[in-house]
Simulated scan of single mutants.
Amino acid sequence: MSTDIKLHKNDLPDDLQLGNVIAVDGEFMGLNVKRDPLCLIQISSGKNDAHIIQLDRNNYIAPNLKEILENENVTKIFHYGRADLAHIKYYLKAKTKNILDTKIASKLARSYSDNHSLKTLIKEFKNVDISKQFQSSDFGGELTSAQLKYCANDVIFLHEIHSKLEEILIRENRINLYKQCLNFLNTRVELDLALFKDDIWAH
């Protein structure tokens, strides 16, 4: 089944219905939040679709996108949300609420592995070998079809992957620890934005 990929300029359409659980990812010009701007946000409803929002970097006015990110009744699934959430807060001025994170879930659930990349999780749980060729490409200009496909792959599998990881967390009695980590995630983002990058719990 081919993925339904739609590119939206500046914001999500007014009439788009995505449901109460969405997968979210962002693309930036680099990992330094204050230097490297947020370029794209991609969202999937979990129905083999990807809505890619190419943001207006002159003003970052995207009220529909901002509303859904801040809506406590909509669950957002990220993979390594720490970087995405920092860029979203800094550029969109939005505090994302009701967050799940497959990387955190993987580190707690898959203690049998030291690899928690999205590529690895997709291979393990979906038996699909995705290309990460465009992970370090330029997302600041016109997008190629290959870049759009890469962006789509970052969100279309997250619903199912999170469900599989949650099953392991429940089975291994680690689900409450996972929930507590999620409660700290926005604080971790605030620490990043305040330039406290190191582990504050370290000696």
Rank of each mutant, 00 (worst) to 15 (best):
K66R: 05
R35I: 02
R171D: 12
K103A: 09
N153F: 14
N71R: 11
K119T: 02
H79T: 05
F125L: 10
K66P: 01
D199I: 07
R57G: 03
Q42H: 12
S145N: 07
K123G: 06
I170A: 00
S111E: 14
S145E: 06
A202C: 08
N59L: 00
V189M: 00
V24H: 04
G141N: 13
I200F: 09
I175K: 11
K9Y: 03
N58P: 10
F196Y: 13
Q180H: 02
G140N: 05
I68Y: 00
N115K: 02
S113Y: 14
I168N: 05
H51V: 06
Q54I: 12
D84L: 12
A94I: 01
D114Q: 08
D84V: 15
S136I: 00
N32A: 11
I161E: 10
G81K: 09
L165T: 07
D192P: 08
L31S: 06
I43L: 04
H8A: 08
L16F: 03
A62R: 05
K103M: 15
I161G: 11
D84P: 15
E70T: 05
S163L: 15
S45V: 04
T3P: 00
I200M: 00
K164P: 12
A152N: 09
N183G: 00
D11N: 14
L118V: 04
E67L: 12
K119A: 08
V189D: 10
Q42G: 10
I200C: 09
Y80Q: 00
I5S: 15
C151F: 01
G30F: 00
I122V: 15
L85Y: 14
Q133E: 04
K126D: 15
L40I: 08
F125Y: 12
Y90T: 09
K95L: 09
A146M: 04
F157Q: 04
A86C: 03
N183E: 13
I41V: 15
D192S: 03
E166D: 05
H79D: 12
K197E: 13
R82C: 03
I43H: 04
H203P: 12
C181L: 13
K66D: 05
Y112R: 03
I53R: 03
L148N: 02
L177I: 04
H87K: 03
I161V: 06
K119N: 08
A94V: 03
D15V: 13
G19S: 10
L193V: 01
E160M: 08
T102K: 08
K9T: 06
L31Q: 03
K107P: 13
H203Q: 11
K95A: 05
T3R: 02
R171E: 12
K107M: 10
D11V: 08
I5W: 00
D84K: 09
N10E: 14
Y150Q: 12
